[in-house]
Amino acid sequence: MKAETEPKELESDWGELTRELLINILSRLSVEDRWRGTMLVCKSWFSAFKEPSLHSVFDLDPQFDSPLESSRWWNSEFEAKIDSMLQSVVQWTQSSLTQIRIRHCSDRYLALVALRCPNIEVLSIRSCPRVTDDSMSKIALSCKKLRELDISYCYEITHESLVLIGRNCPNLKVLKRNLMNWLDPSQHQGIVPNEYLNACPQDGDDEAVAIANSMPTLEHLEIRFSKLSAKGLNSISQGCPSLEFLDVSGCANLTSRDIANASSSLVHLKEIKKPNFYIPRSVFHTERYGHWSLYDERFQTDIFRI
């Protein structure tokens, strides 16, 4: 009796899949898997990869969300890679692009977004050292559907951009304008260039007034480690009556009395994150959190005038 032969493996030509099926497959993959693998398979895969519907949301944040920040993210070579990806997505999607969450892009390619993507609703560009008021003014004038903006750690953006965004983007509900921890810069040293750390914006009250005067429908505001004073916070509470969430943690120029007075008029406020005025010293390691001893003592003194 002849031995039964092994069944032959079915040979598949992945390049023969229909475009609709390829798009369906690609839509189920992560951004990383799409960019690092599928686009390089063959011409038909690359053609499907450029389908606008696959890129209406361009979100690279998960790639940056790790406990350890990398110093290489802050060099020009890495910025050029992010710019190249952003340029490609803008070219493929045009007006169908509605959400962008990236970091370390440049002024030039953010201006390209303003030029070609008028339907942007969410723009998150944290930690972009070379994004300035120039590109933000173009965003303000062209992307009027903007409802969420995150410009945290973008130190070349000033209060002038906040005014333009507020005046030209009436749907804006969420603003995140957090600064790096200047109370304990050691956590950034060796990663973020020192000259950039030293460029931390000092005009906290100017930014607060810009927000108050131009963003009356704001519902969510984050200004961690802002250097605003009680005057600035009062401006925000008066100018942004619809606030439901407010984060002023790390704002060392504010006392608990300042915050209580300002927030009392915010009738819609559901959550407020305050500076941690009374931090038990035993909670922290002295070598890293030594600044908190001074921070704590300052507010222990202020308790007598609250």
Rank of each mutant, 00 (worst) to 15 (best):
Asn198Lys: 10
Ile151Met: 13
Ser264Val: 14
Glu20Arg: 00
Asp302Cys: 14
Asn171Arg: 14
Asp59Trp: 02
Leu112Val: 14
Asn261Gly: 03
Arg305Ala: 07
His159Gly: 02
Ile82Asn: 02
Leu112Lys: 07
Lys231Ile: 15
Glu287Asp: 12
Thr255His: 07
Pro275Arg: 02
Leu110Gln: 04
Gln87Glu: 07
Ser282Thr: 14
Gly15Gln: 00
Glu16Ala: 14
Pro7Ile: 04
Glu79His: 08
Glu4Met: 12
Trp45Ala: 05
Asn24Glu: 10
Asp61Ile: 13
Val31Ile: 13
Leu218Arg: 02
Ala199Met: 05
Met180Asn: 08
Asp150Ile: 05
Leu294Val: 14
Phe64Gly: 04
Tyr196Ser: 00
Val267Thr: 14
Ala262Glu: 11
Leu123Val: 10
Leu183Tyr: 03
Lys50Pro: 08
Lys227Trp: 02
Cys128Phe: 13
Ile157Lys: 02
Asn178Leu: 02
Ser226Asp: 06
Leu254Val: 11
Trp45Ile: 03
Cys42Arg: 01
Cys154Glu: 05
Val89Thr: 10
Ala262Thr: 09
Glu32Ile: 14
Val174Ala: 03
Phe304Ile: 09
Gln94Pro: 08
Pro52Gln: 01
Trp35Cys: 08
Val113Ile: 09
Ile139Cys: 01
Ile82Cys: 09
Met85His: 13
Val113Gln: 00
Ala111Met: 14
Gly190Gln: 03
Asp65Ala: 14
Glu51Ile: 05
Lys176Gln: 11
Arg101Leu: 11
Ile223Met: 09
Leu146Tyr: 04
Asp107Ser: 00
Gly15Leu: 01
Leu172Phe: 11
Ser127Arg: 03
Pro129Val: 07
Lys145Gly: 01
Arg147Ser: 15
Leu164Thr: 11
Pro275Phe: 07
Tyr155Lys: 04
Thr93Ser: 13
Thr5His: 11
Leu141Asp: 06
Ala199Gly: 09
Ser95His: 08
Thr217Cys: 14
Leu112Trp: 06
Ser106Ala: 06
Lys8Thr: 15
Leu54Ile: 12
Met180Gly: 10
Leu269Asn: 11
Leu221Trp: 05
Glu271Met: 12
Gln94Arg: 13
Pro62Lys: 00
Thr132Leu: 12
Arg224Pro: 04
Cys143Ile: 12
Gln187His: 04
Ser124Val: 12
Ile165Ser: 03
Gln94Asp: 12
Gln300Trp: 06
Ile120His: 01
Asn171Pro: 03
Asp258Gln: 07
Asn261Pro: 08
Phe78Cys: 06
Gln202Thr: 15
Ile272Glu: 05
Leu172Ile: 15
Pro216His: 07
Trp182Glu: 01
Arg130Asn: 15
Ser229Cys: 08
Leu112Asp: 09
Glu20Thr: 15
Phe284Gly: 10
Cys154Ser: 08
Ile151Val: 15
Ala3Arg: 13
Trp74Asp: 01
Ser264Asn: 15
Val209Gly: 00
Leu243Lys: 13
Arg34Glu: 04
Ser44Asn: 06
Val113Asn: 00
Asn178Met: 08
Ile236Pro: 02
Tyr196Arg: 12
Tyr295Leu: 06
His188Glu: 03
Ser66Cys: 07
Trp74Gln: 00
Cys143Glu: 06
Ser186Asn: 05
Ser282Pro: 00
Asp296Glu: 09
Arg34Pro: 11
Leu172His: 01
Leu243Ala: 13
Glu244Thr: 15
Asp206Thr: 05
